[in-house]
């Protein structure tokens, strides 16, 4: 399909291949991120807050 728009050398295809790879990976990751459960999402997001290292005198 797109070969008729682009020109000569095979290397010219590389940006298109790259774009498809990225678009595919991006779509897959987005779907995955959207499907993650709320409970799990909140648990993972709160990981830095779980441990309480704020035992300094006061801040």
């Amino acid at each position: 399909m797109f070969q008729r728009i682009l020109v000569e050398e095979w290397a010219t295809y590389v940006p298109i291949i790259s774009f498809v790879l990225i678009a595919g990976a991006f779509t897959a990751v987005t779907i995955r991120a959207l499907r993650i459960g709320k409970g799990e999402r909140n648990r993972l997001a709160s990981l830095p807050l779980e441990e309480n290292s704020d035992n300094l005198k006061s801040l």
Partner: peptide, 27 residues
């Protein structure tokens, strides 16, 4: 999150952020 004392705004976005960034940056 530690300084603001609240979790990251969107964990979903952090997943997309990470994978997109590591995949795209190198090119």
């Amino acid at each position: 999150p530690k300084a603001a004392n609240r979790p990251v705004y969107s964990y979903r976005l952090s997943i997309i952020h990470f994978w997109s960034l590591v995949f795209i940056y190198i090119w």
